[in-house]
Amino acid sequence: MPRMLDVSEDVRAEIGDEEADRLLAGENSPGSYDCTSCRTPGDSEQERTSTVLFVGEETAVLAFAHATCIPSQVVQVAEEQLQGAVRSITGGESPRPPQTPPAAAPGQAVLGVTSGLVLLEEELHPALVVEPTAPIARPGSDSPTDEFLTLLIEQGFQPVHALESVPAQNPGWSVLLAMGQLHAVLQPGTDGGSPTAWWQAHQPLQVTEGWRTAANKSQRVLVFAAPVGSIGQQPREDLLREALEKAAANGNLVAAMMPLAGT
């Protein structure tokens, strides 16, 4: 029986017309599956289903997702992440433990990302808070001035002076949630090219079931950013909100609303 599959042009280009036609005819596609985004069961005979192709340097894995969660697309991921996913799916050896990222060079900052639910306009919104580990200088500049927020405002983020309303959408930016984990924040590609990772997790980040449910429901994520030392690692969401409110009051917060998975 033909499946209710969506195969995007990008996925078709990667797997070839013959394989795509076999999928659409129901020859190589499963009836039931676990959605690669929300991790709940799906049935390609009963509901629209997206084909999602995860591509690494050497490995490619075809997965399936509810069309209401994410569209059919090609997702570029690190080879090590993909190999780990393959091993866990096939029951092979356990994925490698997370490795310590290389130490940043002097003056080089790493972007730290925290997830949490933020109450705005009487609704809980899935949010990410981005804070670098050191001041961010303008590329090519030797100035010690931290221009992190200025650079983001130039990229379409909006200053936040109070945590009251949902920030405006930043066109071309998106948040990639795949296989039920947070993978990247994507920014527009140059000259109309494919989106590139502005931030990419060294290892996919786990998010709470409540955060993932809220993100899948709204299909959008609020991304807040603040200079180093403004937010810190807060163990609870109420403390995270207090830190965000303080940063906003001090003029140290920008934000943007981004669609989920590039939709």
Results as ranks from 00 to 15, higher is better:
Glu80Trp: 01
Pro71Trp: 05
Gln81Ala: 11
Glu57Asp: 15
Ile89Asp: 15
Val110Glu: 13
Pro97Ile: 04
Cys38Gln: 05
Asp34Lys: 09
Glu58Thr: 10
Gln73Pro: 08
Ser50Arg: 08
Ser32Trp: 08
Gly31Ser: 12
Ala105Val: 00
Glu45Thr: 11
Leu23Gln: 03
Ile70Glu: 12
Gln73Cys: 05
Glu27Thr: 02
His66Arg: 14
Gly116Thr: 13
Phe54Asp: 15
Ser50Phe: 06
Phe54Ser: 08
Ala63Ile: 03
Gln99Val: 07
Val86Tyr: 13
Val74Ile: 14
Thr51Trp: 05
Pro98Ser: 10
Thr68Pro: 00
Thr90Val: 12
Leu120Cys: 02
Thr40Pro: 00
Gln108Asn: 07
Ile89Ser: 11
Thr40Phe: 05
Arg39Gly: 06
Pro95Ile: 01
Pro41Ser: 11
Pro30Asp: 03
Tyr33Asn: 02
Gly112Phe: 00
Phe54Pro: 00
Gly112Cys: 09
Val77Cys: 02
Val55Ser: 09
Glu121Tyr: 00
Ser29Asp: 06
Ala85Asp: 09
Thr59Val: 09
Leu82Ala: 06
Asp21Gln: 12
Gly56Trp: 01
Glu57Tyr: 00
Val55Tyr: 11
Arg39Tyr: 03
Thr59Pro: 01
Pro106Ala: 12
Ala105Cys: 03
Leu111Cys: 07
Thr51Cys: 13
Ala63Ser: 15
Thr59Gly: 07
Val110Met: 09
Gln99Thr: 12
Arg22Ser: 05
Glu45Trp: 13
Leu120Asp: 07
Pro101Met: 08
Gly92Ala: 09
Asn28Tyr: 02
Gly84Asp: 14
Val86Pro: 08
Asn28Asp: 14
Gln73Met: 13
Val77Ser: 00
Arg96Ser: 04
Cys69Asp: 08
Leu24Gly: 00
Thr90Phe: 13
Ser115Lys: 05
Ala60Ile: 00
Gly56Gln: 06
Phe64Arg: 04
Gln46Ser: 14
Asp21Asn: 10
Thr51His: 06
Asn28Cys: 08
Asp43Thr: 10
Pro41Leu: 08
Val61Phe: 07
Asp34Gly: 04
Ala60Pro: 00
Gln81Asn: 14
Ser88Phe: 05
